Simulated scan of single mutants.
Amino acid sequence: MKKYLFCILMLIGYSSIAQTNSSEETPEKFVENFFEAFHDQDTIRLKQMAHQEARLQSVSKDKAGKTVLVTEEYGKFIKGIASIPPDAEFKETIHEFRVEENGLMATVNTPYSFHFNGKFSHCGVNTFQLVKFEGEWRIVYLIDTREKEGCD
């Protein structure tokens, strides 16, 4: 009888440890990890964070003040990150996280400012559309705005 009680207590203990260690990643933490991989130029990790059909777009204004929408494949984004020279310094500073999570989907908006080699480049807002596949968040759509002026 003592052996059975001991086994049951061990299983209960193991179960509670497993539940403690399997905390799910929040959408905010996922995006923080994305920017960590971005700044580390970790293209393998960046690729794993996106669904194979992920789509990227950027909104900006041209010199004439006309709104321009640019669409890019996620793979091209990854190649662009890999091509940044090792001596270049780039930093995207996130000013705030606005998260709306609804079951299998989440939207994360992050106002940001971007500096390249210590100089201000642009600012804007990133909007991540995330979907949870098999318990893990993946980027399915990422759009950002890029402004040169009006950044506070």
Results as ranks from 00 to 15, higher is better:
residue 2 K to S: 04
residue 3 K to P: 06
residue 4 Y to I: 13
residue 7 C to P: 01
residue 11 L to A: 11
residue 11 L to F: 14
residue 12 I to Q: 04
residue 12 I to D: 01
residue 12 I to W: 02
residue 18 A to E: 13
residue 18 A to W: 02
residue 19 Q to H: 12
residue 20 T to L: 09
residue 21 N to G: 03
residue 21 N to E: 10
residue 23 S to D: 02
residue 23 S to V: 13
residue 28 E to H: 11
residue 28 E to K: 15
residue 31 V to P: 10
residue 31 V to T: 14
residue 32 E to W: 00
residue 34 F to Y: 15
residue 37 A to M: 03
residue 37 A to F: 00
residue 39 H to Q: 07
residue 39 H to F: 05
residue 40 D to P: 04
residue 41 Q to Y: 02
residue 41 Q to F: 00
residue 41 Q to E: 11
residue 41 Q to H: 07
residue 42 D to W: 10
residue 43 T to L: 06
residue 44 I to R: 01
residue 46 L to M: 14
residue 48 Q to S: 14
residue 49 M to A: 12
residue 49 M to L: 12
residue 50 A to Y: 09
residue 51 H to E: 12
residue 52 Q to N: 07
residue 55 R to H: 12
residue 55 R to F: 12
residue 56 L to H: 02
residue 59 V to H: 03
residue 59 V to E: 08
residue 61 K to A: 10
residue 61 K to D: 11
residue 62 D to Q: 10
residue 62 D to G: 15
residue 63 K to H: 10
residue 63 K to W: 04
residue 64 A to D: 03
residue 65 G to E: 15
residue 65 G to T: 09
residue 68 V to F: 02
residue 69 L to V: 14
residue 71 T to A: 15
residue 71 T to D: 14
residue 74 Y to F: 13
residue 75 G to I: 10
residue 75 G to P: 03
residue 77 F to A: 04
residue 77 F to L: 00
residue 80 G to Q: 13
residue 81 I to D: 03
residue 82 A to D: 07
residue 84 I to C: 03
residue 86 P to L: 09
residue 87 D to N: 08
residue 88 A to F: 08
residue 88 A to C: 06
residue 89 E to H: 15
residue 91 K to H: 13
residue 91 K to F: 15
residue 91 K to Y: 11
residue 92 E to F: 07
residue 92 E to S: 04
residue 93 T to Y: 06
residue 94 I to T: 11
residue 94 I to W: 00
residue 95 H to D: 14
residue 95 H to E: 13
residue 97 F to R: 12
residue 98 R to M: 11
residue 98 R to K: 14
residue 100 E to T: 15
residue 100 E to Q: 08
residue 100 E to I: 15
residue 104 L to R: 10
residue 104 L to F: 13
residue 104 L to G: 15
residue 106 A to R: 09
residue 108 V to W: 06
residue 109 N to W: 14
residue 110 T to M: 01
residue 110 T to A: 08
residue 110 T to G: 02
residue 112 Y to P: 11
residue 114 F to Y: 11
residue 114 F to M: 09
residue 114 F to D: 13
residue 115 H to F: 12
residue 115 H to T: 13
residue 116 F to Y: 13
residue 117 N to Q: 05
residue 117 N to G: 04
residue 118 G to N: 09
residue 119 K to D: 07
residue 120 F to T: 05
residue 122 H to G: 07
residue 122 H to Q: 07
residue 123 C to S: 03
residue 123 C to V: 04
residue 124 G to V: 11
residue 125 V to Q: 07
residue 126 N to Y: 10
residue 127 T to Q: 09
residue 128 F to G: 08
residue 128 F to V: 10
residue 129 Q to M: 03
residue 130 L to N: 05
residue 130 L to P: 03
residue 131 V to P: 04
residue 134 E to K: 09
residue 134 E to C: 00
residue 136 E to R: 14
residue 136 E to I: 09
residue 138 R to E: 04
residue 139 I to H: 07
residue 140 V to D: 01
residue 141 Y to P: 00
residue 141 Y to V: 03
residue 143 I to F: 02
residue 144 D to V: 01
residue 146 R to T: 08
residue 147 E to G: 01
residue 150 G to C: 10
residue 152 D to S: 11
